[in-house]
Amino acid sequence: MAESLQPRVRTRRQVVRIVVVLAAAVVALINIAPVLWGVATSVRPPERIFAFPPSFLVGDLTTEHYAQVLEGTFTRNLANSVLYSGVATLAAVVLGAIAAYAFDRFRFPLRRQLFGVIVACIPLSMGAAVLVIPNYLYFAALGLLDTPVILPLLYLGYNLPMAVWIIKGAMEGVPTELDEAATLDGASRLRTFFSVVLPLCRPSLGAASIFVFIGSWNEFVAGSVMVNSSEYRPVQVAVYQFISAFGRQWGPLTASAVLALVPILVLVVFFGRYLVAGLMRGAVKG
């Protein structure tokens, strides 16, 4: 085919290619420029942060903002968030997978309605932020305020609907014949689920995990209101602490934001391929 093309057409194609790649590079740069600028700010000496015109050169760098951030309870808050997000993720994937399996394979009363409830919970979870005050009173009545349980529980609830949705999509892609074959071999339902269906859904479990983890990691409102003592505080609230009553401290603020970004970045770099692969199965089937 290519041999038969006129040279001029080939050059034009190459030009188009270069333009597309350049355009993509520019778009990508614009997309991440604010983040890069944040990183740059985090290593600038305080007196150079507000310099105008802004300098794009790498000048005298400093680690003082990082030192200041790490001095306080920040590492503790970081560890809290790892724990909260980890627990929420694990619970969401386990509970979500079991529920998704039932929704996909079983016929039971209220099945449609209950799945409708899960879908309805998506707007509820996103609207929870504006309901801080009643939420506070509600969870206070449950006696859960300022305990290590409250945040993982909330994060689980906020992200569960999405997890069920993703995993169910993947299970639809696993042929039911496989279940039937396993059942014929005498395997129990639970066993079929664990040894046949789940392994085939691994990418989507990975994708769901990343979604839940990121969602939990970045949650802010509940984290700032539902716990009072710094020993239970999650990382985003610790970052926000540098926007104090006495002004935005851009240095420590960006330094802590960068530190808070690192775990997520690691997750996305190493497991990012699951994201697309995990969402693929059943993405086309409704």
Binding site: G96, A99, A102, C121
Partner: peptide
């Protein structure tokens, strides 16, 4: 099936629906 979906529904009830 209800047993399988019960834990999820319970969490959603406590964390999202009742509030």
């Amino acid at each position: 099936g209800l047993v399988y979906v019960a834990p999820v529904m319970l969490v959603l009830l406590v964390v999202l629906i009742l509030p």
